[in-house]
């Protein structure tokens, strides 16, 4: 699937590039893309080190266990298997909390650790398990109590009321997150 997406994007880019007369820009774009990957990885390295380190401290101190006990009723509905085995539940709790607090750069490390824990119970390691898919799709709905980035961009654009969109954003992201869970679980049950 990932290979297909890569192929489709490259092919589209080439066709449109030639059509638009942007063919010369494509050569530079290839190099920029590869160099950009290193930059993204570098900043990701820092974030992963910091948040996975802090997560380990909080886990040893028992804070994450308390957090996951708090969120358990909700998580049992969304991730029934993980709630049963207990594997990955703490990481998922941390991921959900980071999303809610709007700490986007902490949410990714927590989610990746959760994927690793869920992978332990994945019968076929080269294909995603139902709960891994639910976790990934849920994270694309980006439920956040305080969308700080969005507010900053609206303020920078000179909006007199940057907060006006807060409640609609909450409604849409909660509905979309619910849809993500229902959709992925319905399909997962059929397979």
């Amino acid at each position: 699937m990932l290979g297909k997406i890569y192929g489709i994007i490259c092919l589209l880019a080439l066709l449109f590039g030639i059509w638009n007369g942007n063919a010369a820009a494509l050569g530079g774009a290839v190099i920029d893309g590869a160099a950009g990957a290193v930059q993204v990885t570098l900043s990701l390295c820092g974030m992963m080190c910091l948040w996975c380190g802090m997560m380990e401290v909080l886990r040893e101190a028992g804070a994450i266990r308390r957090l996951s006990r708090l969120l358990r009723p909700l998580l049992r509905l969304i991730f029934p298997r993980a709630a049963q085995t207990g594997e990955g539940l703490e990481e998922i709790s941390a991921n959900v909390s980071a999303n809610l607090l709007g700490i986007g750069n902490a949410a990714t490390p927590m989610a990746l650790r959760a994927m690793e824990q869920l992978q332990k119970h994945n019968p076929k390691p080269d294909r995603a398990s139902a709960e891994q898919i639910t976790l990934a799709v849920l994270n694309t709905a980006s439920v956040s109590l305080i969308p700080a980035n969005l507010l900053a961009l609206r303020r920078a654009a000179g909006s007199p009321q940057p907060y006006a969109i807060m409640v609609p954003v909450w409604i849409v992201s909660v509905v979309c997150a619910a849809l993500a869970v229902v959709l992925t679980r319905l399909i997962g049950r059929g397979k």
Binding site: Y6, C10, L15, F16, G17, V30, G33
Partner: peptide, 11 residues
């Protein structure tokens, strides 16, 4: 990121 960079440059 290479694929996406290509897509952005292609217009």
């Amino acid at each position: 990121l290479t694929a996406i960079s290509l897509l952005n440059a292609s217009g």
